[in-house]
Design a protein around this nucleic acid. Sequence first.
DNA 1: AAAAAAAGGTTGCTATAGCAACTATTTTTT
DNA 2: AAAAAATAGTTGCTATAGCAACCTTTTTTT
Lengths: 165, 165
Amino acid sequence: MVKTPYIGKWISCLYRTGQSFFDYHLGSYGLGSGNGYYACFTYLFRHEGITQDTISKHVAIDKTTIARSIMKLETLGYVVRHIDPIDRRAYKVYLTEKGRALQPIIEATLTQWTTSLTHGLTPEETQMAYILLERMTQNAIITKEKLSSQELSRSEPNETTFINN
Amino acid sequence: MVKTPYIGKWISCLYRTGQSFFDYHLGSYGLGSGNGYYACFTYLFRHEGITQDTISKHVAIDKTTIARSIMKLETLGYVVRHIDPIDRRAYKVYLTEKGRALQPIIEATLTQWTTSLTHGLTPEETQMAYILLERMTQNAIITKEKLSSQELSRSEPNETTFINN
DNA sequence: AAAAAAAGGTTGCTATAGCAACTATTTTTT
DNA sequence: AAAAAATAGTTGCTATAGCAACCTTTTTTT
């Protein structure tokens, strides 16, 4: 890898090799390299009966991507969706037995990837990596929100622009 | 973002928001969200006349992706390719004037993204983030290489498997 | 020197994921 | 209560990027 002072390059490489890793280890379950699947799964492992939109917002992935991920997971028999009788626009998403059976496998793979990445780091460095990545992610989300609000800001001039400072 | 002990989630978010960022800032130059473009550019800014394969290996991006990136950059008039007279399989890639004119713009955008991500971090933390990301990326590449060599290891039993330890 | 293997690139195919625009409900305005 | 706006989800489209297979040229074996 070339040395440049740009973080994006490392991120990009980590993302892409991660995709290969997940595809390699979980491809046989019908899941491929899609981060969307694992985002949905890890969220569903903790919060069943939530809507796609809730997942989308909590994992910071576009609702279209979540919709298609859930669609695939439903086809594969890992989740079921029931229309929310109170809000008939929304689906509540539940894991099936088959889906829940995947929990240890998915968690093991995610852990394994994390472990691979932090190989050779001290526990303190690993901890630090977590914290820094989390903070950078927060910054990334804020930056993106600023861009979106700037796009709208012709009609409703700068008001939302500084919300996330 | 949901709190889980998996690094992949932060990486994924950073990667995707980064794509949006580049698309937003550089889309008007015909470059979109493709990390491949910026990898090619930043490498070409320092090393002109190299082959696609060299780029591919140095930036750890599949040669197919590099090929298509370069193809697009050629169409857009940012690079030219000349067959290497010594090795007629290979193309040597050069920036055009138009391509070189993009250097400050691309570098500014890459820097801006890095700056956005590290907002609120101390210089030491930023430095730490760099180092840790770099080390994790090295681990990622090694892990991936291990997987590839395992796939081959039926024909030529484990020999290459431990090379990268 | 011929055959085999490796290397540089390309093509075909696939999965992923975002954006814009849309439908259908629900909520808020007025 | 009607109109407007917001929300949940889907469809269409696009760009990105990897893998497998392939072609061509070069290098290595034998």
